[in-house]
Write a protein that binds this DNA or RNA. Structure first.
Length: 1165
RNA sequence: AGGCGGGUAGCUCAGUUGGGAGAGCGCCGCCCUUACAAGGCGGAGGUCGCAGGUUCGAGUCCUGUCCCGCCUACCA
């Protein structure tokens, strides 16, 4: 009897979000490999705040995560953030510009310090957003792609790939952003059609015999031309091949990349790649500033002349134009060319222009020296194709754990096969005098097992169970031995006798076997339940044995929807090497140290050091967290700075927890470990000059600073310089699915949680991220990074346009949460997620689902207000369930099944709509209304409270509401948690840890379901005619019925009260003849006569029925045509013909009814 | 240029091996009935882009075609 008041999403969402985090509800320290379910979040960039696409992505993952958790899986969902190299640097730089500061003036070290100050702020903001959204991530596993562990992982990955020859440094043409002054990968360039100009320029032949005209869109690059190319087949130019032209304007000597002088006289060469039908068929060749020209230049050994610098300004090779910005140069060059008559013509030309995905600056193709990852190498590509195309089978040695528990006469043995294989097997051997064994799930009786011939214990088992469960909460197993109830968790059963039974979990099934005639024989399948052995271990002696097994594993990545598979494979087919170096500061610096003496490229990682603290200091230097020359104080400060990792974790904490926590490499000596774990790492002590520092550090007495000694592997020189470039952000993101678990350390997380089970992401980053995770995962880990990839659509605005800040059409998730609540936001996004289509979203869409939340709230209010606090104790039922109780329980059961099925297929929309429909239409619109007759019943004279029927109704209301909440919980975690916690029948830390309802055979009441559906039709047809007659609901009418079927008669008698209430009648009597002053309607075979006094709008009603009659006639026409076709009857399957006949019969009846009503109306008129 | 997705009610979209065209929102009518007007009850509304074909039967399969969106490639 409590009224929770009005629905206030802000209050409850804040409350539970805090509660879940404070109680670490979603943190699992040691997930069980048998039932683990791991997901890694696509890490949002630390550049700003989350947009609606993130909300969609996170919501879908959370729906699956919560659902899986409720299904008994050990869900670990790892959250984290991406350092987003260029993007972050861009944003921070922009901020600095506002303050009038410049990155270049600041210098690398100072600038990075700024970024490190900035990152925690945005990281915190995004974290808050995720919390508000209610995602059930494990915050204690939070990671950052630039944290301590990732830096190590990146260096390790780089080293492995480098040493295998898969990473190389080379001078090639790359996409260059003059604004950000860095190279970009092909994927980071966005192409768009733009209006431009095509200039036709005359290049005079050297011998003065005329000219050749070339067409170009970028005349400024002519300064770097080193040839003119024509197609060898081109008759127009055949005779010119081999001759030379003189480059207009250029009357100076240029220098190529090697410093050789290049004259303005350049050759006319033949190359089949030149298209004869474009422009003039002759093309100027600028090997340094065009990808195609680059190839031609290479193949023909042309000189490479660079005419622009990193900023997009013309360099010294541009002679009089040097120092000009590229577009100014273009204008200047065209003007002069025109003046001097070199321009033959100009015309408008549409062509696609590449722009930097970040700052939208036009990309300049430029020759430069970069690092590349040879993704096209078979070692990487072939497996990445195979694991998606057809999967691969591998044989692996896995560890197996056998556990035995012994208690008196009871033996339980559990065989656990390592979760990686996906195979688990649990065996329970029951010996002794067992009357029954009951298994429970979340405080509910899930199954009871009786040895044969003792089924009479059923009721006793239930009674005992309820008694027990009220006293003590949620037992896992109950075993009754010789009349004594024993709960495994609580104590030790007594008694010993013969007879053995076995409960075997086989896949999803729980099968019962008995031991007869010296062998096990199958008895029956039990309803499968989640079985935990942990509680058993606490009180019972457990023996664990480890074995090794050869297991065959199938690794296959499945894309959902399937079409993304082709999308991925097509891209993989012609893969170009990946430019992984970036000329920016924010990111993972390439772990290469160039020897300034011999030029050797040394790759170093902390593997090169044996001792933990040396590794640590090396990492700090390589990460740029301390300078190459440092003091112990600086080391101490870096070690204790939380900003480098996350909220409440310093670098040191990080090392303790992740890096050398459990599975440290064997070459770490004992004293280092002790130093690390028994006392805080003390840089002062560590760096005291002495034996331990010899050959590792050098001390400069003048500066009082230390330096770590690195030696060139080739010439032992100490004169090394670390590579300035950093790695493409996606290089580190590619390591995400194993980096987050501590790779390259062999942590227990890595062993149990990799590969992950699911990745949820948008299609826009399949190439950027998904493909690269697959490449790195299969190569470095030897196994796929995830089993399923669910690819969701992009969120667009109501017009179908991409949301962007500049267009001003963005929907801010925080605003939506504020206005409509996170539950409404989540449910909306889930309900709109259908496979293969973008989501068009307008704010209006959230409103409807907020109404749904409100509906849930009010339904719960109705239940709570009417439920006595002690309801649970009144069980078992005092009165039997009514037909409508069994109907709603059946519908609930059907809904549980549907939602599960849809979620299994990642059919988010259908899953959401199934529970929506059940809750609103079945539960609220019908069941609650039907329940009021019992719930509001006052005790009759002589009757005592509580009224048994009323209690049964309330029991059912509570039962159904509670289960419905559990089905709803993955979609709407906050409101369901709030209500669930208020229900008297629930108990537990969180609804999210309760069991997701499984369909149960003993809750299928087909007969009652059909009966109530019939009742609904009857009531609706009365309501319909009332509405047709515009009779207001408050007016109660008299009505009569005439029916030929005894079943209908029975139905009406059984539900008479409901009919009176819901159809708003004050009398409903049987009749043989049509009473005067009535109009009739039909519900199935039953005719209902409604007494209508006063004026009735006959015309209006006549029109309605005329229309209905016409509709019936047209449908009848269709069936008649079909059925009269001889071919149809002969060729169509008999059941289809039969169905069509049935339809026709029904329509004919409908027609008769309609005509009768129309006749009646005429009479009245 | 190639590929993918889509064109079904006013809007946003479902439509499962081919077998009586659906939902939500919006709209119309009646109602503040003690969970909820953020609600209840009832109702109207569609040649399933177009044209062929296969079939007894096509929103669903095939061919062609027209729009819209996206991706990849080329663009001197």
């Amino acid at each position: 009897m409590k009224d929770p008041g009005q629905y206030d999403h802000k209050r409850i969402e804040q409350k539970w979000s805090k509660y879940w985090i404070e109680r670490s509800i979603y943190h699992l320290n040691r997930p069980d490999p048998r039932r683990k379910f791991s997901i890694v979040i696509p890490p949002p960039n630390v550049t700003g705040s989350l947009h609606i696409g993130h909300a969609l992505n996170s919501t879908l993952q959370d729906v699956v995560a919560r659902w899986m958790r409720m299904k008994g899986r050990d869900v670990v969902w790892v959250p984290g953030f991406d350092h987003a190299g260029i993007a972050t640097q861009y944003v921070v730089e922009r901020e600095l510009t506002k303050e009038g500061k410049s990155r270049i003036e600041m210098g690398r070290e100072e600038f990075l310090k700024k970024v490190w100050e900035w990152v925690p702020k945005t990281r915190e903001a995004i974290r808050t957003q995720l919390e508000k959204l209610g995602v059930s991530v494990d915050w204690e596993r939070e990671r950052f792609t630039l944290d301590e562990g990732f830096s190590r992982a990146v260096r390790k990955a780089f080293r492995v790939l480098y040493e295998k020859g898969l990473i190389y440094k080379g001078t090639y043409i790359v996409n260059w952003c003059p604004k950000d002054q860095t190279a970009l990968s092909d994927l980071e360039v966005e192409h768009e059609e733009e209006e431009g100009k095509l200039w036709y320029i005359k290049y005079p032949l050297e011998d003065g015999s005329g000219h050749i005209t070339v067409a170009t869109t970028r005349p400024e690059t002519m300064l770097g031309d080193t040839a003119v190319a024509v197609n060898p087949e081109d008759e127009r130019y055949k005779n010119l091949i081999g001759k030379k032209v003189r480059l207009p304007l250029v009357d100076w000597l240029r220098k190529d990349l090697e410093g050789n002088e290049v004259k303005p006289e350049i050759p006319i060469i033949a190359d089949p790649r030149v298209k004869m039908d474009f422009g003039t068929g002759a093309v100027k060749v600028t090997p340094c500033h065009d990808p195609n020209d680059y190839q031609i230049g290479r193949d023909h050994n042309l000189p490479f002349v660079r005419v622009m610098d990193e900023r997009g300004y013309m360099n010294e090779n541009a002679g009089e134009f040097s120092g000009l910005e590229r577009y100014d140069a273009r204008k200047g060059i065209v003007d002069i060319l025109r003046e001097q008559g070199f321009i033959e013509k100009e015309k408008d030309h549409k062509h696609s222009v590449g722009r930097c995905y970040r700052c939208k600056t036009v990309i300049e193709p430029m020759v430069s020296t970069q690092w590349f990852l040879k993704v096209s190498d078979p070692a990487i590509r072939e497996r990445s194709v195979k694991v998606v195309e057809k999967g691969e089978k591998r044989s692996e040695v896995k560890e197996i754990y056998l556990q035995y528990a012994e208690v008196g006469g009871l033996t339980i043995s559990l065989q656990v096969v390592d979760g990686v294989s996906g195979e688990t097997k649990a065996v329970f051997q029951l010996e002794g005098d067992i009357e029954f064994l009951a298994g429970t799930r979340e405080g509910e009786l899930a199954y009871i097992y009786y040895p044969e011939g003792r089924k009479e214990n059923s009721q006793r088992a239930k009674d005992l169970f309820y008694r027990f469960s009220n006293e003590n909460g949620q037992p896992e197993f109950i075993i009754a031995l010789k009349g004594e109830l024993t709960i495994i968790r609580m104590g030790v059963p007594s008694g010993k006798e013969e007879g053995r039974f076995l409960l075997a979990q086989e896949g999803e099934r729980l099968n019962l076997y008995s031991f007869e005639n010296e062998k096990w024989s199958y008895l029956k399948e039990l309803e499968a339940g989640r079985t935990r052995l942990e509680p058993v271990q606490k009180s019972i002696k457990v023996r664990v044995e480890k074995e090794e097994l050869n297991i065959e594993k199938e690794s296959k990545i499945v894309f959902i929807p399937e079409r993304w598979k082709k999308f991925y494979l097509d891209w993989m087919k012609d893969l170009k090497d990946w430019c992984i170096s970036r000329q920016i500061w924010w990111g993972h610096r390439i772990p290469i140290w160039h020897c300034l003496d011999c030029g050797h490229q040394n790759v170093f990682t902390d593997d090169d050091f044996d001792r933990v603290h040396d590794k640590l200091i090396f990492n700090l230097i390589a990460d740029g967290k301390i300078s190459e020359e440092f003091t112990p104080e600086e080391v101490a400060s870096a070690l204790n700075s939380p900003q480098f990792v996350h909220r409440n974790m310093s670098v040191l904490d990080f090392y303790k927890r992740f890096v050398y926590h459990r599975y440290h490499s064997t070459d770490i000596d004992e004293s280092s470990l002790r130093l690390l774990f028994t006392q805080d790492l003390n840089p002062m002590a560590m760096l005291t000059p002495g034996v331990s520092t010899k050959n590792v550090y050098s001390f400069n007495p003048r500066t009082k600073k230390w330096r770590m000694i690195l030696r060139c592997r080739n010439c032992s020189s100490e004169n090394l310089k670390q590579e300035e470039d950093v790695l493409d952000t996606w290089f580190s993101s590619a390591l995400w699915p194993f980096g987050v678990f501590g790779w390259p350390e062999e942590t227990s997380d890595l062993k149990t949680l990799y590969p992950t089970d699911l990745l949820v992401t948008g299609f826009d980053i399949i190439f950027f991220w998904v493909a690269r995770m697959i490449m790195m995962g299969t190569y470095l880990m030897g196994d796929i990074p995830f089993d399923d990839v669910y690819v969701h659509a992009l969120v667009r605005d109501e017009k179908g346009q991409k949301m962007s800040k500049t267009k001003g059409n963005v929907i801010d998730p925080l605003e939506i949460i504020e206005k409509y609540g996170a539950d409404a936001l989540r449910f909306t996004l889930t309900a709109l997620t259908v496979q293969g289509r973008d989501i068009k979203l307008s704010e209006k869409r959230f409103e409807g689902f907020k109404h749904f939340a409100n509906k849930i709230w009010n339904a719960a209010r109705y239940v709570l207000i009417n439920t006595p606090e002690n309801l649970a104790a009144d069980l078992p039922l005092m009165a039997p369930l009514s037909a409508e109780d069994r109907w709603i329980i059946t519908r609930l059961n059907e809904t549980a099944r549907k939602v599960s099925e849809h979620l299994e297929n990642y059919d988010f929309s259908k899953a959401a709509m199934s529970i929506y429909e059940f809750f609103w239409s079945d539960f609220c619109d019908w069941y609650i209304e039907l329940s009021k007759e019992r719930v509001y019943r006052e005790p009759a004279e002589g009757e005592e409270e509580p009224i048994p029927e009323k209690i049964t109704a309330l029991y059912t209301l509570n039962y159904v509401l509670e289960k419905a909440l559990r089905i709803l919980h993955p979609f709407m975690p906050f409101i369901t948690e709030e209500i669930w916690q208020m229900l008297p029948s629930t108990d537990g830390d969180s609804i999210s840890l309760a069991q997701f309802p499984e369909p149960r055979e003993d809750e299928e009441f087909a007969e009652d379901r059909d009966k109530v559906e019939k009742l609904k039709t009857l009531i609706s047809s009365i309501r319909s005619i009332r509405s047709d007659l515009q009779i207001e609901p408050s007016k109660k009418l008299k009505a009569y019925y005439r029916c030929s079927s005894p079943a209908d008669e029975e139905l009406i008698q059984e539900f008479k009260n409901h009919i009176l209430n819901l159809a708003r009648l004050d009398e409903f009597e049987k009749t043989e003849e049509k009473p005067s002053g009535t109009l009739s309607t039909f519900a199935g075979e039953t005719e209902v006569f409604l007494s209508v006094e006063g004026e009735v709008d006959i015309d209006r009603l006549t029109k309605t029925y005329d229309k209905r009659k016409e509709k019936i006639l047209s449908e009848l026409e269709r069936t008649r045509r079909k059925l009269s076709s001889e071919e149809f009857v002969r060729k169509a399957p008999p059941e289809v013909v039969e169905k069509e006949r049935k339809i026709q019969r029904e329509l004919e009846e409908e027609l008769i009814k309609a005509e009768r009503i129309l006749g009646m109306l005429k009479e009245v008129n």
